[in-house]
Design a protein around this nucleic acid. Sequence first.
DNA 1: ACCTTAACGCTAACCGTTAGTGTTTTGCAA
DNA 2: TTGCAAAACACTAACGGTTAGCGTTAAGGT
Lengths: 211, 211
Amino acid sequence: MTEQPGRRERKKAATRKAIADTALRMFLERGYDAVGIREIAAAADVAITTLFAHFPSKEALLFDEDPQREQRLIRAVTDREPGRSVPDALRRHLHEAVRELATPGSMAFWQLVDSSPALREYATTMWLRHEAALATALAADLGRPEPSTLCRAFARFVLGVHPLAREAADPAAAVDEIFDLITPGWDAAVAAGPRAHARVTAADAEPAREA
Amino acid sequence: MTEQPGRRERKKAATRKAIADTALRMFLERGYDAVGIREIAAAADVAITTLFAHFPSKEALLFDEDPQREQRLIRAVTDREPGRSVPDALRRHLHEAVRELATPGSMAFWQLVDSSPALREYATTMWLRHEAALATALAADLGRPEPSTLCRAFARFVLGVHPLAREAADPAAAVDEIFDLITPGWDAAVAAGPRAHARVTAADAEPAREA
DNA sequence: ACCTTAACGCTAACCGTTAGTGTTTTGCAA
DNA sequence: TTGCAAAACACTAACGGTTAGCGTTAAGGT
């Protein structure tokens, strides 16, 4: 019970870690685009196919910790302390995530990411993979079996907070700023209940509404 | 003055159009992934290098009309009729854009896009290229020289509306739903003025705020 | 009629990625 | 212990998108 993964899995994990560490070191030394897959495989002393058996793509060599990220994100919603609203729980979660950006290792990492436009875009899009999961959690919290457009949109916007905050001068303030942007609309929609937004809908039928 | 671009540019445009048309036809006939660049070049009777001289990537063969898209987007903000708010102007613009989805040619096109996950992601990310331009326009509308985090976030969210609405059962209703989500926060932030959001900022310092 | 420029083409290669195929190692059970 | 199935690993070869290098042709301006 005290975690005995067996020699096989230990070796597998060791190989995986060796590949990831080698790749990260080479990327930091020479830049992401300047290091090829073949070089990494050679430096880690594995075959290219082995490398791709552990990591589905070159980018995955850098962005590795995904599996638990989604879990923590969803739990930020489901396991929030009673009395706290969903947006506030997510705001807290994002504050924690953004706080890690100040870590020295993290700073070198993100500096590397920012050095390549392709990596930057990957880092931005990466988060959207959890959209479906977060949207489902949001819908479940509202007692609906399937995520509505509202849930999907809110989920996508929340997942866009981290990349946006990272580019800001003051990431923590940016998190608050963005949550202040999307929270009122969410609260209003939730308070109005499902399909109650139709009243406000006729915006494109009549000319101007407000200044 | 009646547009005489010269034979050279006419030929260039013809070549470009021939490539794009050939590519679209082949994609529609056989699917995006089943058609290779070399085949397209051969069918259009040009060299591969010529193809890449006109289009920077394979995806660009499909998503071609970008240059004027950004212009129309920005003008939706700058040239809006007086008395209309920025979110409402953008809401209108998105309604127009989404209305085109019902066009028969458009439906075949988007069905093709949805057939390949890589294309779907490209179509989603594509819009974000206009984020900087839209954010700058938003900032200018507020009388600020540089886009704040608020403008950047709002721009990114607006650019996410189209892909989100496209996936919804009722795209027009989805546009309204999403704009109802982000509009209240924007109005509040604009009403409060720059850097006035700090009052609401201490969310992660104290335990719970509201239900 | 020249001369510059740009479009176009060819070859050859690079890079990420995958299929196919085989070999070794490990875990498990008879 | 032996035997067996699965999984990790490796090797070769290739595919598809993309680019560099270098040459050729046609167009525009003077």
